[in-house]
Computed example of a mutant assay.
Amino acid sequence: MSTLHDNSIIIDGLNISKFERSVFEDMRKGGVTAVNCTVSVWESFQKTVDNIAEMKQQIREYGEILTLVRTTDDILRAKKENKTGIIFGFQNAHAFEDNLGYIEAFKDLGVNVVQLCYNTQNLVGTGCYERDGGLSGYGREVIQEMNRVGIMVDLSHVGGKTSSEAIAASNKPVCYSHCCPSGLKEHPRNKSDEQLKEIADAGGFVGVTMFAPFLKRGPDATVEDYIEAIEYVVNLIGEDQVGIGTDFTQGYSTEFFDWITHDKGRYRQLTNFGKVVNPEGIRTIGEFPNLTAAMERAGWSETRIKKIMGENWVRVFGEVWKV
């Protein structure tokens, strides 16, 4: 592991792997300081609470390598103690149901990032795979409440119109925790130059993903192609508002992809990713140091690397979580 990687705070802005001992050990092997772990997509309020309880049990069980992140101080402590900080995140506001009171309840349980919509329509707004009706009136209240309690608004899978209205409605920075630029590849999940500038101009944040179907060369992508996507976004909005959001799905089989690509997890198929294989050089979470090394090879300054590998996320999380 390079000294630079070792001395940096490494944050993965989105990981939806099969959370179990082997994955957590790989996070340690990769030197990951903190990671936004998805604990809800299509699950109900009740099932999401079950997922959180299960994750908390694992954090206790593997306490020598894991710790729960509620504040940015917890991230810094994780770094000092050589642990990986687990940030609870949702990829859908579905679990809020129609109850604003659930938002603070989830914050109290440790939830710190919530994506408003997952691909399709919910009570808040519209996802990126159907006609976008924009943010609902209830959606505005959801954002106000998330701002109040300190949960970050994530717009990665959200439709363009709903995203624009959410960016305008939030009085705290919002993010695309995991996306790629359409400038390199056209895809419903990728964001145009205008969308990337819009979120950055509002003080928001962009986590760039390495999910191969969104990268220019798809399943043939290497870690260099991932660097190209990050560099594209940095050239557009500057190095202070960009970070990493891998979208690792480590440990999952085809059933998982069937579940996440169907509306509500069980209705119509929204998309077919084809062959899903992570870029060569960063196929597993344990290979995270290769990303820092690739940035060094690309001639990036140490300051830029440290910002993008984690410091930027820490700063923006601090702005949102502080209430």
Score class of each variant (00 low, 15 high):
residue 44 S to Q: 08
residue 49 V to I: 15
residue 114 V to N: 09
residue 26 D to R: 13
residue 95 A to V: 02
residue 111 V to K: 04
residue 115 Q to E: 15
residue 100 L to V: 00
residue 148 R to H: 12
residue 71 T to F: 11
residue 119 N to Y: 13
residue 72 T to E: 13
residue 12 D to K: 03
residue 136 S to H: 02
residue 154 D to T: 05
residue 124 V to Y: 07
residue 143 I to S: 07
residue 41 V to W: 02
residue 53 A to Q: 14
residue 46 Q to R: 12
residue 87 I to N: 02
residue 22 S to V: 09
residue 117 C to L: 10
residue 143 I to K: 03
residue 91 Q to A: 11
residue 106 F to A: 01
residue 118 Y to L: 03
residue 25 E to K: 14
residue 105 A to K: 04
residue 103 I to E: 06
residue 136 S to R: 04
residue 128 C to F: 02
residue 125 G to F: 01
residue 89 G to A: 15
residue 26 D to F: 02
residue 109 L to D: 08
residue 112 N to M: 13
residue 32 V to G: 06
residue 94 H to F: 14
residue 119 N to V: 01
residue 64 E to C: 04
residue 15 N to K: 03
residue 75 I to G: 04
residue 72 T to N: 07
residue 40 S to A: 15
residue 38 T to Q: 04
residue 59 I to V: 15
residue 108 D to H: 11
residue 53 A to R: 13
residue 86 I to D: 13
residue 44 S to A: 10
residue 102 Y to C: 01
residue 136 S to P: 01
residue 55 M to Q: 09
residue 34 A to M: 07
residue 115 Q to S: 11
residue 29 K to G: 02
residue 24 F to I: 00
residue 146 M to W: 04
residue 140 R to T: 05
residue 93 A to W: 08
residue 47 K to P: 00
residue 135 L to T: 04
residue 58 Q to M: 15
residue 125 G to H: 05
residue 92 N to Y: 07
residue 86 I to E: 08
residue 120 T to S: 14
residue 144 Q to I: 00
residue 123 L to V: 04
residue 49 V to A: 13
residue 62 Y to L: 15
residue 38 T to M: 05
residue 58 Q to K: 14
residue 79 K to M: 07
residue 146 M to D: 06
residue 85 G to V: 05
residue 90 F to L: 02
residue 128 C to K: 00
residue 58 Q to W: 13
residue 148 R to S: 11
residue 151 I to H: 05
residue 18 K to C: 12
residue 137 G to M: 05
residue 18 K to N: 15
residue 59 I to E: 10
residue 154 D to G: 08
residue 69 V to N: 04
residue 54 E to S: 14
residue 16 I to C: 14
residue 62 Y to F: 15
residue 81 E to S: 09
residue 9 I to Y: 14
residue 78 A to E: 06
residue 17 S to T: 01
residue 45 F to V: 03
residue 53 A to P: 00
residue 9 I to C: 06
residue 76 L to V: 12
residue 71 T to Y: 13
residue 135 L to P: 06
residue 42 W to P: 00
residue 17 S to D: 14
residue 44 S to L: 10
residue 124 V to N: 09
residue 106 F to Q: 00
residue 9 I to R: 03
residue 114 V to Y: 08
residue 9 I to S: 01
residue 117 C to I: 05
residue 100 L to W: 07
residue 49 V to G: 09
residue 116 L to K: 05
residue 48 T to Y: 08
residue 95 A to H: 05
residue 111 V to P: 03
residue 32 V to Q: 08
residue 66 L to V: 01
residue 43 E to K: 05
residue 118 Y to R: 00
residue 72 T to G: 01
residue 132 D to L: 08
residue 126 T to A: 10
residue 17 S to L: 10
residue 102 Y to F: 15
residue 20 E to W: 02
residue 95 A to T: 01
residue 151 I to E: 09
residue 88 F to Y: 15
residue 135 L to A: 10
residue 19 F to M: 14
residue 40 S to T: 09
residue 150 G to R: 06
residue 100 L to S: 07
residue 90 F to Y: 09
residue 35 V to T: 13
residue 122 N to H: 05
residue 34 A to L: 05
residue 148 R to N: 11
residue 142 V to K: 05
residue 20 E to H: 10
residue 75 I to Q: 09
residue 83 K to I: 01
residue 145 E to M: 12
residue 81 E to M: 12
residue 38 T to L: 04
residue 30 G to F: 00
residue 140 R to E: 15
residue 39 V to A: 02
residue 82 N to S: 10
residue 119 N to C: 12
